[in-house]
Simulated assay, not measured.
Amino acid sequence: MLYRVEGLVIRSTDYGEGNKIITLLTPSYGKQGIVVRGAKKLKSRYGSLAQLFTYGDYSYYKTGSLGSLNSGEIIRSFHELREGLEGPAYASYAAELTDRAINDDEAAAYLYHQLMACQVALAEGKDPQIVLRAYEMKVVQAAGYSPMLDECVSCGRQDGSFRFSSTAGGALCYLCKHRDPSALELEDGVWRLLRVFAALDMRRLGNIAVRESSKRQVQLALKRWMDTHLNLNLKSRHFLEQMDKYSDMLGERTKRPDPETGDGAV
């Protein structure tokens, strides 16, 4: 049967000597695996359609679990996301998270549009820490694991201070915080940011100015949440964490005072 869909390439792997298998996220059929024959050859007509992050119009035949590309056309290549070091790292994380967090027939239109907006935001140069945290919230929502953020998961209290518990299901009030001694104490601004991310459509994401300390707290809260409920070992996240550690190390080196002048080293 011949299918025609618009889709985003969220995975691309070598298959045989000259072929690739791509995973498309589509609005109509969820994830679709398609063989692109000859994609690795220099003069391939469809090699660019098999590149990671590509958004295109794909026509393919499918009789079993895998389809076979018949024709296609690039709508947007998102070449910006394949340049340098940070761009591919951030975009790869969003793609791998999407691929691993949902089953082939899940999410469809909702997460497709959210991932598309995530890619557009990264390509436009918006703060990747904010873009990825917002998208992580969209993924956990699509997977059915939304945290409760507006009231205590234990007693329903809606006022007072809260702590964030990934094991209890979200917010714990000051009377119930004993239920999870490891629950995170977050800044008020971080709670507001988490609630914004929960209600946000990624297509309306603007430029949000957030302090570095708040970014770190949001990152830790969502990391714990995903580790508890999705339990994914993502190569791309590990790479980002190593990149962050290296950046922090360079930052500390920059701040270290010169022993003779007392000025910060360059």
Rank of each mutant, 00 (worst) to 15 (best):
L69Y: 09
P88Q: 06
Y93S: 01
S65A: 14
L186H: 11
T228H: 10
N103I: 07
S213K: 13
P181A: 09
V9H: 14
V131I: 02
S28F: 05
H229R: 11
G84E: 04
D14P: 13
Y15F: 15
Y15W: 12
Q51F: 03
L24D: 04
F53G: 07
D188P: 09
E185Y: 00
E124R: 13
D104M: 10
D57V: 05
G156T: 07
L111F: 14
A171L: 09
R76E: 15
H229F: 05
V131S: 01
F162K: 09
V5H: 14
G72L: 07
L42F: 07
W225G: 10
D159L: 11
S213G: 06
G64R: 15
E252H: 11
L42R: 10
Y46E: 00
G264S: 14
E151M: 11
D201G: 02
T98D: 06
G7H: 07
K41G: 09
H229Y: 11
M249V: 04
Y174K: 07
P128A: 13
E151G: 04
R237A: 08
P88E: 08
S59M: 14
R253I: 14
P88L: 06
R195M: 12
K31E: 07
V266A: 14
A39Y: 07
F164C: 07
L2Q: 12
E80N: 08
P88F: 05
S12A: 14
C155R: 05
G7L: 08
L49K: 06
L200T: 08
L172A: 00
K138H: 10
D105I: 06
R253L: 14
K126I: 09
G30W: 01
L42T: 13
E187M: 12
Y29S: 10
L25W: 04
Q119T: 00
P27T: 02
L193N: 09
D180P: 02
G189F: 00
G169E: 09
V120Q: 14
G87D: 04
I102L: 15
E252T: 05
I34F: 02
R4L: 00
S213F: 08
A117T: 08
E260I: 11
G87E: 00
P181K: 04
L122A: 10
R157E: 15
L122W: 08
I21S: 02
D248A: 13
Y46D: 04
A108F: 03
G87P: 01
V196A: 10
G125W: 12
L230E: 06
Q129E: 13
T98Y: 10
E106V: 01
Q32W: 08
G72F: 10
M116F: 15
S59W: 09
D159R: 13
S236Q: 11
V190Q: 10
M202L: 15
A134Y: 03
P27Q: 00
R253H: 08
S12K: 06
G160H: 12
K177Q: 15
R4K: 03
D99S: 01
K215P: 02
N103M: 12
R192W: 08
R256K: 12
Y135G: 00
S77E: 05
S182A: 13
I75C: 05
Y112L: 04
K62R: 15
Y3R: 11
S213M: 09
Q119I: 02
R237V: 03
V35C: 08
A89P: 03
R237G: 03
S59T: 15
R4G: 01
H113P: 00
M249Y: 14
G170S: 03
A123R: 02
E185Q: 07
Y90I: 00
T98E: 10
S166C: 11
L222N: 04
R216G: 06
S12Y: 10
C155F: 07
